[in-house]
Design a protein around this nucleic acid. Sequence first.
DNA 1: CATGAATGAGCATTCATTCAT
DNA 2: CATGAATGAATGCTCATTCAT
Lengths: 204, 204, 204, 204
Amino acid sequence: MARAPVLAENSRRAQSKAANRQQILDAARAVFAELGYEAASIRDVIRRTDLASGTFYNYFTCKEELRQAIADDSAARFRPLLQKAHDEAESFEDYVRRGFVIYFAFVAQESMAQQNGVLAPNFGYRIDTPEMMAVFTEVRAHIEEAIAQGLAPQLDADYFTAAAIGVARELGERMCQRLPLDPLAAAEFATRFVLAGAAAAAIS
Amino acid sequence: MARAPVLAENSRRAQSKAANRQQILDAARAVFAELGYEAASIRDVIRRTDLASGTFYNYFTCKEELRQAIADDSAARFRPLLQKAHDEAESFEDYVRRGFVIYFAFVAQESMAQQNGVLAPNFGYRIDTPEMMAVFTEVRAHIEEAIAQGLAPQLDADYFTAAAIGVARELGERMCQRLPLDPLAAAEFATRFVLAGAAAAAIS
Amino acid sequence: MARAPVLAENSRRAQSKAANRQQILDAARAVFAELGYEAASIRDVIRRTDLASGTFYNYFTCKEELRQAIADDSAARFRPLLQKAHDEAESFEDYVRRGFVIYFAFVAQESMAQQNGVLAPNFGYRIDTPEMMAVFTEVRAHIEEAIAQGLAPQLDADYFTAAAIGVARELGERMCQRLPLDPLAAAEFATRFVLAGAAAAAIS
Amino acid sequence: MARAPVLAENSRRAQSKAANRQQILDAARAVFAELGYEAASIRDVIRRTDLASGTFYNYFTCKEELRQAIADDSAARFRPLLQKAHDEAESFEDYVRRGFVIYFAFVAQESMAQQNGVLAPNFGYRIDTPEMMAVFTEVRAHIEEAIAQGLAPQLDADYFTAAAIGVARELGERMCQRLPLDPLAAAEFATRFVLAGAAAAAIS
DNA sequence: CATGAATGAGCATTCATTCAT
DNA sequence: CATGAATGAATGCTCATTCAT
């Protein structure tokens, strides 16, 4: 009979496993940022690592799973913040402002975490990840709710969400190119811009 | 002695050359739209053609050059329209409106030209092509000019341009998912949104 | 000083060792039958086990050694039966009959032991294992002995053995495809066939 | 417009293509014989060749296709001979004799064609290729026909075919180990053996 | 200039095997 | 002895690119 494996949470083995996983994730984030997700190969990732090629497959079964892990990581960190912004907001204006503040802070942080701050992260290096879609959907839901409650102007929630996210993305990238990073300034610009836009785009 | 070949512009040879080049470009546009730029291989492109694989290299030296050519093609068709909008505009508001109208019309047209309208055109399938940068720069120049002439509010031209382009891109994608395509409605929304935003973002 | 471990034959340790070895052998037999020897990987085998991958190498040094062990196991079970048939036979005819009876019974049993009866056992999944050669040699020796004693017709013992084994193998496979398995019928057919053949092939 | 390809049957290009294909087939036959089909890798095959690895895929899309090509080649050469034997045979006995003669001649020839005469070809290096099945089916049909016409004894055609093929295979291998090759002697042995067996196995 | 076979580097993935725990 | 993570060679296959025809 085989003995039941005694795997202490903090054994040297387990520690090393966690470290290797993190190593791969870090390398992947950097490589995807440099080359783009599609262009990057798994080998590019492990080359950025002191692990052997086969080791990758002890942690992820394919490139897609790796992307998921990274994206989930980003989403898992961002979406609660967004939810909190929504819950704590005292008005529609406040929600918009808080949303932009946390978004640009988040982008700035991700940007600094990576050696090369040039490519904006955009939540996963690609334009339409499922997580980005989820954020979009969530934001739109918040907005529809605000409209329903009469807190926000009557407008096309879908288009408005798209516009706001477009502003956030594009401004986020520009912001990363201006040093020192000033997420609050970007948030201030975006907030004013979008709130005025919302009023103007309201269905007359 | 053989005479040196005199290659008239419209000789059979030249016609054939132009036709082959166009054939490759058309195939590439379709293939890139279907598979995405990275996933598509040159072989996929020439397979869509009645040319031999080696022939590709008489026209382009690598895949990147092909992408450039397509993007330049898009840009070459779009930028004169934008310039015209600028030249004919009678005010800053008019420029913004005309710009959005031609942009959404352009996107709608490209979207319909491709079988599957799901992939956003975005001027060449990728987020930061040099041409996109050029358009960005051009728009910003127009705006700085307008500010200098007192036609537009005093604001951060760089951020404003980014915001406007962000709205255009994101709205363009949403628009493509609503059938029937209604570029004028999108343009109307964007115009109102951005003009109000511009006023609000003006340096106080 | 630690006492040197006294490893009784039936100590817990030894029992566990034997059980692990048997576990691996059983799994291997099943996996080889399902996927074929070449296609099966050691990982496939240990996955069918509750042992860890590294443990395999405490018992076998490589896949080939595992195959040997299985084949030896088959041979070790079959050859005594064959020897017994020889020793108890009262005539050449009787030897041939007994030999076929035990062979087809053996094949039928192996076939049923495995879920899928389609793969012919053939003594170890491969056509020319050393053990098969050994059986061949043994049968030929029996036959040469019978010829020398005047019990069997004068014939080319090598070719005759080959013919008899060919009949056994091929018939064994056909038999496995007819349900319900009827090893006695196959043995009857083979016996008549081979005995008559022997007579006819006798050196005239 | 692309010119229509002018591919002379006997152009240097076409000749080279045919030569390369043959080179691969020859190498594959040798490698499969040495290592077995499953154990052999495509790289083993091309290494035996002066071609580059990628070139393989200009001729075959996978290993299986290669096996097919070889097997078809063998089958395509053998089955007409067998059919001819059947058509020209003047009796059941004659059919059996002719069948064995051509089979052993075929095996002898294949054996000599390969450097290493040790491994018998067996029509494709593996025990149950589709082609082998086809030959089996064909032979059984011939035999059932003979039984129906009263030319052959009433017997279990399926088992009889299996027995005859078993004799052929096993004897073929033994024959290849006796130098000089004497296919006629093997055929003579097999014919006598099988015909007598057929009579004895007849349903009484 | 078109052709398409040849090339060989490159990729994702698997696997036997080792070895620190 | 058992464990299972790490290793890196090997495999099937793709593809951009070259070049003789």
